[in-house]
Design a protein around this nucleic acid. Structure first.
Lengths: 381, 381
DNA sequence: TCGCGTTCCTTTAACGATACAGGTGGAACG
DNA sequence: CGTTCCACCTGTATCGTTAAAGGAACGCGA
């Protein structure tokens, strides 16, 4: 009887009440007299009862008050990416406001994704997706509310995603307005490969580049350095990066610039050091007066490369990033960048998934982007 | 019958087998023939069965395969702190290796900490504790395995914590070895207030400063700027910061420096901007040749202040940080800092809590710290 | 006295799964 | 032909909780 871990029933018997009353003592204090409640809690404490078991509660109520985040990427990469951290930050904030906890669900490739199947959650948020990743199918199999963030679009799943092409176009127009005429782009992975400016096969509407007039040629691309497997690692992300390159080039074209004249280099990965190396290759080759980094991380690396090359930013070289991560404001000079408020997107993801959980209609407003002009851009000399 | 969500039983009846067999089809493929399994799974798919319900499983097995992290601080602050992010990174990595997920448990002050009570976890990791925070009592009430990280020590709970005083002393000796004789310290909150070098009341053994010879006077402290509530916000963290200040001053004293000659300033909070402002106040007053920032974030702010004041780092001013966050290696000049491998501490926390869950004995090795010499320190001119 | 609403507590019946202990049929073996 | 063994599957008993409905006691106005 007294053996084992105490339960509601144990406490109830010891206190001379029903199990339901003990439950109410914890969860609905207004349903029983203050003195009974005090007595029950005292008995519970004496027995070492730890409170109503979450598993039992969750089974009964069909709620977990928890939302899972699927991290398709390698976990290390996830925490190292300041953009993703900002998104998680906003997501956690939005969930906390609604009284929900956040479960980070790792995806080990081998173990049949037991985590996805076992996760005690009321819904999922999918981030940084690799298209066709098997864990995604497992998530959909759970038949729970889902929202995805960024690329790619999953049929039937609400999605939060900036219009990368349009946002990148804003960066281009900012540079054009300053009077620049020679440009470079630093991207990463193989997102410069089959250039989206010419194609657009896998791109969804928001990111689709319209076909362009004949005569446009695909700019030459310098490939990444010695990390052969890196390019294939984050194709989901790369769709977004492609759209940024595409949108940037298209806006330049609209501004009278020949896209073929633009140097496009690809870093091995989205890291500051890789961006620095890629930008250094570009600057060794020819010297544009303005460079667009498809992420702030790459743009910051470009600042490093410019410093190493003895170029003054912004007098000899203007640099624009994308994301507006925290480090962008702290660099020297402070980075001009396309802000997409990743934090707000995280909060939006929270509200979208919670709307679904609650059965409310889902509405996804467009994501605002704007160029934040800081010290890294200026008219060319 | 067919109404409602399908369960093991529903599937079992449709497939003409027992519920247990359906369960085995999902969880122990070796317990039934391949063809039966295929048939069961096919029926399940047809019925739209989402797989064994995690809540039911968790109730029955008494496991959640999840570890909770209690974020006592405001959630926004947690994600904004690169040191904490590194720790979480290591923690998530260690848990993922063991097949465990990570639950971020927010602590809203009002709602009776329902999250802590309802969290479906097998154990807790406590971080960034505010001493006496009521959520901690709730965690202990759950009677689950717990490990805490950093300050303060909780009786009966294993704790992972660097010897802050000793580590800070290494920074001091590095600067002494370079030949510096005039020093400054940038800390934050009120961690400079009742100076640990003189006191040590709340400090645990690892951080306790030994009493010093008479004649040592408490250095004057410039208070933080206009954020009156900031100082009281993170006293748990501040115990650690106090120990760093203490250890630094003590080592200087051992090296023949009068602690009273050291300028100690406190930033309003642990942010780069606040560190810059605090350092600027110090540099406007007097100009030491070496400054110790108790966190990298503050040390980076100090670099900014030095740049603004037209001081060359490291020629005119040496700067040492603490933590070795990612940004430390990327600053200009790269920051010399006391590395404490926050990532490894996160992994250690994972193994400690999992050892407890599994009933294995807990062993906490000492945390290694070392001075990573980069470009921000040099002999004084 | 009766009717009626309140307050406080109890009863009943799931929620969905898995551990454990069999049971069954057929092949292998002597 | 009886025994043993194995592969495969089933029956039963919980795991701990809460929703919903019900009932006893009490007070109060008519």
């Amino acid at each position: 009887m007294t053996a084992g871990r105490p339960t509601l029933e144990t406490v109830a018997q010891a206190a001379g009440v029903s199990a339901m009353t003990v439950s109410n003592a914890y969860n609905r204090p207004d349903q029983l007299s203050e003195e009974t409640r005090a007595r029950v809690l005292a008995v519970a404490k004496e027995l070492g009862y730890a409170g109503p078991d979450p598993a039992g509660r969750s089974l009964r109520t069909r709620r977990a008050d928890t939302i899972g985040v699927l991290l398709t990427e390698q976990l290390p990469y996830a925490f190292a990416d300041p953009g993703l951290v900002s998104f998680l930050h906003g997501l956690a904030s939005g969930l906390a406001d609604a009284g929900q906890a956040l479960l980070l669900v790792p995806t080990e490739v081998n173990a049949e994704h037991a985590h996805v199947r076992n996760a005690l959650v009321d819904g999922f948020v999918l981030t940084s997706l690799v298209p066709g990743h098997p864990a995604v199918a497992d998530v959909l199999g759970r038949r729970l509310p889902v929202v995805s963030w960024g690329q790619p679009k999953i049929p039937g799943v609400p999605r939060i995603c900036v219009d990368n092409a349009r946002a990148a176009a804003k960066a281009a127009r900012h540079l054009l307005d300053l009077g620049h005429t020679s440009f470079g782009v630093v991207t990463f992975g193989d997102s410069a490969g089959p250039l989206p400016y010419a194609g657009g096969d896998a791109l969804t509407s928001g990111d689709r580049a319209p076909s362009v007039t004949s005569g446009d040629r695909v700019p030459s691309v310098t490939s990444g350095d010695g990390d052969p497997d890196a390019p294939a690692r984050v194709p989901g992300v790369q769709l977004g990066m492609r759209a940024r390159v595409s949108g940037f080039l298209r806006a330049l074209h609209a501004g009278g610039i020949d896209p073929a004249s633009v140097s496009v280099v690809a870093a091995a990965r989205n890291s500051r050091a890789a961006g620095r190396d890629a930008a250094a290759r570009m600057l060794a080759d020819r010297r544009p007066t303005a460079v667009f980094g498809v992420t702030d991380v790459l743009a910051l690396g470009t600042l490093d490369a410019a410093a190493n090359a003895g170029m003054d930013v912004p007098r000899q070289l203007s640099v624009v990033g994308f994301d507006d991560v925290a480090a962008a404001a702290a660099s020297v000079p402070p980075l001009t960048t396309v802000a997409q408020s990743l934090f707000d997107q995280g909060r939006l993801a929270a509200s979208v998934v919670l709307d679904q959980v609650a059965g409310r209609p889902v509405r996804i407003p467009p994501i605002r982007t704007e160029v934040v002009v800081r010290g890294s851009t200026a008219p060319p000399i």
